[in-house]
Each structure stands twice: as C-alpha cells, then as structure tokens.
Write a protein that binds this DNA or RNA. Structure first.
Lengths: 140, 140
DNA sequence: CACACATTCCATTAAATTATGAATTGTTGG
DNA sequence: CCAACAATTCATAATTTAATGGAATGTGTG
C-alpha cells in the first residue's frame, strides 16, 4: 500500500545525466580499466619516481620485457604515460602531475582503510568453493 | 658510450615504493577495475543523483534486472555503492561523497579533453549476447 | 656493413569478465 | 498459507584480456 510501485519516472532526474553519451562513458571506463591491473599500477608507481626505460622497468619488476612493453603501450594509449626517445632507449614517464596524484592517492587510500570483511568478497573470478548446498548465508 | 648500460640499481629508488605489497596493489586495481566498465559507470552516474532500487535502475538503463543486480554486487564489493533495505525494495546509493566526487570528476574530465587521435586504440570490453544454447562445453 | 642492444610486434594460449535466463530466496499483503 | 513482486544466485556461452616466446624493427658503434 504505502510503497509505490517501482516507477523511475517518479524520481527527479537531472537532464545532464540523460545526456551522458556512450562515448564519454566508454572513454572514462577505458581509463579506469587501464588502471585496473596490478601490473600496470606497479609500473605507474615506479614511474612516479621518475622516468625509466623499458629494460629498467622490466628488471625492476622482474618481468618479461615484452610484457612490460605491452603494458606500457596500453598506459600510453590511455594517456596515462608518455614516452620519449633518448638514443637507444625510450624513457617512459607519467603523463602529467594529475596522473601522479591520482595514482598516489589511490594507493594511499587503498592502503589506509583496509578493506577487510567486504560485504561480498569477489576474488578475481573464481566460482565459489561452496561445498554445502546450504545457499543462504547469514547476513551481517 | 655516453649512455650507460641499463642498470636499475644506478637509479635512486625510494624504499616506500619497494614496500608496495601485492595486496595493496591488487586492492587498488580491483577498485579501478570496478570503475572500468561503462555499464557500472552508468549506474554510478545515476546513483549520483540519489538512491534508487534495482528495478528502477534496470528500467532507467533499459537493462536486465539480473544484469544490474550483478553489477551492483560488484560495486558493493568494492565499497563504491551501499545498499539499504526498505520494505520490499533495496535501495542503492553511492558509498560516500568521495565516490561521488571521483565519478563526477572522471566523467567531466573525460568529457573535456576529447581523447581523439590516441597513439593506440584499445579495444573495449563488450560481453556477450549469449544465446541460450546449451550444447557446447568449453574446457576450463 | 655487421653486430649488439633496446623495443615493439605478432600469434598462441590460458584466464578472466560479462550478459542471459531460469531457478531461488525474500518480503508484503490478502 | 498463497500470490505477486523484488532481488539475488547460478550455470553457461561468448568475448576480452594478458602473458609468453620468438620474429621483426630500430639505433648506435666498431
């Protein structure tokens, strides 16, 4: 009775939101996606200290050069990193101070509030262990 | 001769960076990953206007309820969104003002400087229409 | 030019992510 | 309790994504 039937139109919705075109959404998502990988994030963290070439980066991270190169390509494609050739080497650096801040903030933040006991821990893709068929779990 | 052989050890590296443990990295990446999808981003954008229940959200986005629910689950698991039961409905909202700002900023930013002419266009994640035919099994 | 080093490119393969639709759980009211 | 609505869960299939190793490209040097 009291609860109205779900009616989106009953809510006040800003027009600016409706204008959110898919391209902007996709563009924004792509940037976040580029940041959403530990390997790439680690690279950015190293670059936050100053420019490094691919070989140095690979050695620092103890990773394959090819792997690092491809990660850098992605970061560059999203304008998070820039490259500059210097002789035989190609040095990579964060695109700008804005990116540097973003990365620093993010790492710091995630470090501070330890996210232990998430409402729903969803590890990197792995169907639940769930040995019992008892599906209902006690909410906390 | 001028260019020194690649020697990571020659560079001054902050200890704080070496301490960047994998867990923090992964945690941070997970948050960005959650933001790195247009569908989820769109949800957050709607929620930025105020709380909505799943059905409303689904109707607004013209998406399957199940799909929206699962996206919300992910967002909630990364503490980007919060849920609160109200009778028959479960209302979702942005976790806090911090998230709201982050989303607003990101969208705005990506809207401003049009990233046209990227060095390398990165494909985007667009999952599947999935025809409900259950005749094929993939090894996994 | 030939050589060594730096980086990128490419194909292959394994793993992760997502939408879909049916089944399940949960809530309210008659 | 049952009916109807709300939301989540689950298994599945398609697609994407990322690491690997080797080939190809680029660059400086003897």
């Amino acid at each position: 009775m009291s609860l109205p039937r779900c009616q989106p139109s009953e809510h006040a919705l800003h027009p600016s939101l409706s204008e959110l075109d898919d391209e902007t959404l996709e563009r924004t998502a792509a940037i976040f996606r580029a940041l959403g990988d530990p390997g790439r994030l680690r690279i950015l963290a190293w670059l936050a200290r100053g420019p490094l070439c691919v070989t140095e980066l690979a050695a620092s991270l103890d990773e394959n050069v090819s792997t690092v190169s491809q990660r850098l390509k992605l970061l560059r494609s999203e304008r998070l990193a820039r490259s500059r050739r210097e002789g035989k080497h190609i040095f990579y650096a964060l695109a700008d101070r804005h990116v540097a801040e973003l990365v620093a903030n993010a790492l710091e933040h995630a470090n501070e509030r330890l996210n232990r006991g998430k409402p729903d821990s969803v590890p990197r893709a792995r169907p639940a262990p769930a040995n019992g068929v008892r599906s209902r779990k006690t909410s906390r």
